[in-house]
């Protein structure tokens, strides 16, 4: 039942094939976090993958640095409707981190310093779709954008790209994470506008 807004014309517009429905372009890099920005020293940082068998796979900052890094050139889409095109990140592929992980579970919960969590299907973070990043635009990642290390999963809304990431726990079912328990969609595909639950 769309109604027209008297006197509204909107911005001049041209086709934006890279922009998912309902999104607008921004040149800024807005910050959205549920609480304070934590300060995390590289020396104190680690990343751990835990499986249902109790196995853990951990990397310190220096161990992460020793892994192969990739340049990631991608568009990002926030559920608050801004999109930023052609951003540049540098990080380690989840494929590298999961190379020796054995699990029969199909889902993951990503954990961050400060208690933030977000849930994902395992298949959405493998095959070159997700990274642990430590650089944005050629500079170390700023704390308010998730530094020293942020997971990025750019094909989903950006709340799935957990700031201050510290670990992944394999889970049997797609149990919801932080925003997913607070009214947001469990999967978050921006091309299908999966914003709210």
């Amino acid at each position: 039942m769309a109604i027209f807004s008297r006197g509204f014309t909107g911005r001049p517009r041209e086709a934006q094939p890279d922009l998912p429905p309902g999104q607008f372009l921004t040149e800024d890099f807005p910050v959205l976090s549920a609480g304070p920005t934590p300060t995390i020293a590289e020396a104190d940082w680690s990343f751990t993958i835990k499986t249902e068998l109790g196995a853990t796979h951990s990397w310190s900052w220096d161990e992460l640095q020793a892994l192969p890094f990739e340049d990631v050139h991608t568009d990002i889409h926030c559920v608050t409707r801004w999109s930023k095109l052609a951003t540049n990140w540098r990080g380690v592929s989840m494929d590298t981190l999961f190379a020796d992980v054995e699990s029969s579970y199909d889902y993951v919960m990503v954990h961050s310093t400060g208690g933030y969590t977000t849930n994902l299907p395992l298949e959405d973070i493998l095959d070159g779709q997700a990274w642990i990043t430590t650089e944005f635009d050629g500079e170390p990642l700023e704390p308010d954008h998730g530094g020293p290390a942020r997971m990025i999963v750019p094909h989903l809304y950006f709340w799935k790209s957990a700031k201050w990431v510290r670990g992944i726990t394999m889970q049997r079912s797609d149990a919801p994470g932080f925003w997913e328990q607070n009214g947001y969609h469990t999967y978050g595909n921006p091309w299908r506008e999966e914003r709210y639950s």
Partner: peptide, 13 residues
Amino acid sequence: DPVSIKTERFGGS
């Protein structure tokens, strides 16, 4: 305690 502080931000950085 950081968990007792809820934030809502707007605007670019």
